[in-house]
Design a protein around this nucleic acid. Structure first.
Length: 249
DNA sequence: ACCTATGTTGATAC
DNA sequence: GGTATCAACATAGG
């Protein structure tokens, strides 16, 4: 369930493990994960090159190379970056890169919703949720009749927020996820941004969004970790949503 | 054994 | 532009 915090940790892993070593071989035979590329296309572009930088925006990562081609990586829902010795690849390793230093870097993903592509399109992503300015947050997030939660989940508006992080943030800010975004005043939007940044910071430090406080309350019998009131549950923005029936009503 | 939830993206119809 | 629904994936859990 990778959201921004998990992806940032994965990016740091890539930075630590993949930079500065020449690419010896690439396995891009999974045509679903590597779509729309044909098998061998990514391998041909990358073999012999060296990764020079690891970037992230929202949930999308990309690695620059000294030869120009850029490798885009997305973890989907169940993806992870793993490093290990070269050798037979576990069948959940959907895309692998063998490095000259004697390591194998893999996108391991049971569900195959992750992606590995050449020169990823970042143009449709909004500003990163951890870095968006106060003004940009106000205008991008707060100027739509869509429920505020749906707005937070829209990667073209702001990049990196998933279902759990959205619930966590709205709970921290004591805001009703169903409220039309343009009914929030500036103080509420500023507070929402503040809580979003804090939730992201804590999740990165603790290991992921599943360490959030509302996580244990996400069940039909759950109660608010702050006031003990029962949690409400509904589909908002197409996703299962939990919120405090008392504080966020 | 069946059914549903899981999270994200993208395509489709309205 | 929206919303709503579905499909894609493969597994875990009820």
């Amino acid at each position: 369930m990778p959201e921004l915090p998990e992806v940032e940790r994965a990016r740091a892993q890539l930075e630590q493990g993949a930079l500065g070593q020449q690419i010896v071989a690439v396995d891009d035979r999974d045509t679903y994960v590597c779509r729309p590329h044909a098998p061998g296309e990514i391998a041909e572009a990358l073999t012999g090159a060296t990764f020079t930088a690891a970037h992230r925006r929202g949930k999308t990562m990309w690695l620059d190379t000294d030869r120009g081609p850029v490798l885009g990586l997305h973890l989907g829902m169940t993806g992870a970056i793993v490093f290990g010795p070269p050798g037979p690849t576990p069948h959940w390793d959907r895309f692998t890169v063998e490095l000259a230093g004697g390591t194998r870097m893999a996108l391991r993903d049971k569900r195959r919703l992750g992606r590995a592509v050449l020169d990823p399109d970042l143009g449709r992503l909004g500003p990163d949720a951890a870095e968006i300015s106060r003004d940009a947050f106000r205008t991008r997030v707060g100027t739509s009749v869509v429920p505020i939660k749906a707005r937070l989940l829209d990667q073209g508006v702001i990049a990196g927020v998933g279902n759990l992080l959205a619930d966590e943030t709205l709970w921290r800010a004591r805001l009703d996820p169903r409220a039309p975004a343009d009914t929030l005043d500036e103080a509420q939007l500023d507070a929402l941004r503040r809580e979003l940044r804090a939730a992201i910071r804590e999740a990165i430090a603790l290991g992921g969004v599943h360490t959030g406080q509302v996580m244990p309350a996400r069940s039909r019998t759950g109660s608010c970790p702050r006031c003990g009131a029962p949690m409400s549950r509904a589909v908002v923005g197409g996703r299962t949503t939990y919120w405090c029936s008392k504080e966020q009503g």
